[in-house]
């Protein structure tokens, strides 16, 4: 990908040590099987609060699969079996009494390909709010506006809130999906290659947005774009064929990785 000039921004002060003693998301010995094949192998990982963590690795390495474990979207596929534990805020999300729906309300997700509903822009953002029982028009209006502002989309759509979301450009659609996700105030936002289908300009806007959002949210992002990971994340985890190879601060991963495989990948020798 061609280098693009990034707008000047206040880069966050990167933490130097990996996470505090009690991370927000604690993955322990997690393995995932599709039928008989093991797609994730004994992953252990702790992710901190209000930081951006990037999952990188060549395609098929399991980074998206792991991401989808965090809001149990893998439940929707038949034949998927999970071993080990994954705790959010100390609660095992795969425990018997956990309601996947309740979990997903609190762990939001933005997909690789923008997927606004075939409804109006307003209704797209309001949908999640209504699901959570918000009914009053004035309340809805206020949160929709705030969310759209939060996703840096308000100025572009404020005059056509009630026209179809499918009429927006790709980048706008993706920002709408982000607005939709943040409207219900999740604790964590999962992003699955959110900018891979966008042009460089739209990508830059999304990245800018992610840096703003991390002041309020914990963000986990999957990306195959290493520059992107370097630009926006505080921590980076490198995966290879279902295994976690290395997890450290982004600065360390990209400047001085401790594993040979990581170095080969981030320097572009394979992948």
């Amino acid at each position: 990908m061609a280098e693009i000039t990034m707008p000047k921004m206040n880069l966050p002060g990167t933490a130097t040590t990996v996470s505090a003693s009690a991370p927000l998301i604690a993955i322990e010995n997690l393995s995932l099987y599709y039928g008989a094949s093991k797609a994730l192998k004994n992953i252990s990982l702790g992710l901190g609060e209000k930081v951006v963590t990037a999952f990188i690795g060549p395609s098929g390495c399991g980074k998206s699969t792991l991401l989808r474990c965090l809001n149990r979207m893998n439940d929707l596929i038949d034949n998927v079996r999970i071993e080990g534990s994954c705790k959010i805020g100390g609660h095992d999300i795969y425990a018997k009494d956990v309601d996947a729906i309740e979990l997903r309300k609190r762990v939001g997700m933005v997909f690789q390909k923008s997927n606004p509903f075939p409804k109006s822009i307003y209704e797209n953002v309001a949908y999640g709010l209504r699901l959570h029982g918000m009914k009053a028009k004035s309340e809805l209006d206020a949160v929709v506006e705030k969310s759209l502002r939060g996703a840096a989309l308000w100025d572009e759509v404020k005059d056509r809130l009630h026209s179809s979301a499918l009429g927006l450009s790709g980048g706008q659609q993706q920002r709408l999906c982000i607005a939709r996700a943040i409207a219900i105030r999740p604790e964590i936002i999962l992003m699955d290659e959110p900018a891979s289908a966008l042009d460089p300009l739209a990508t830059a806007r999304i990245e800018e947005l992610i840096l703003e959002l991390k002041k309020e949210f914990t963000i986990v992002i999957v990306t195959h774009n290493m520059q992107q990971a370097a630009r926006i994340s505080d921590y980076t985890a490198f995966f290879y064929i279902g295994e976690l190879i290395e997890f450290d601060t982004t600065a360390k991963i990209f400047t001085n990785p401790s594993k040979r495989q990581t170095e080969d990948y981030v320097t572009g020798r394979f992948g």
Binding site: L76, E102, L103, R104, F117, P118, Y127, L131, A181
Partner: peptide, 12 residues
């Protein structure tokens, strides 16, 4: 994608 979007928002 529609279905996934809604489920990810916590819809049943």
């Amino acid at each position: 994608a529609y279905t996934q979007g809604a489920l990810a928002l916590g819809a049943s």
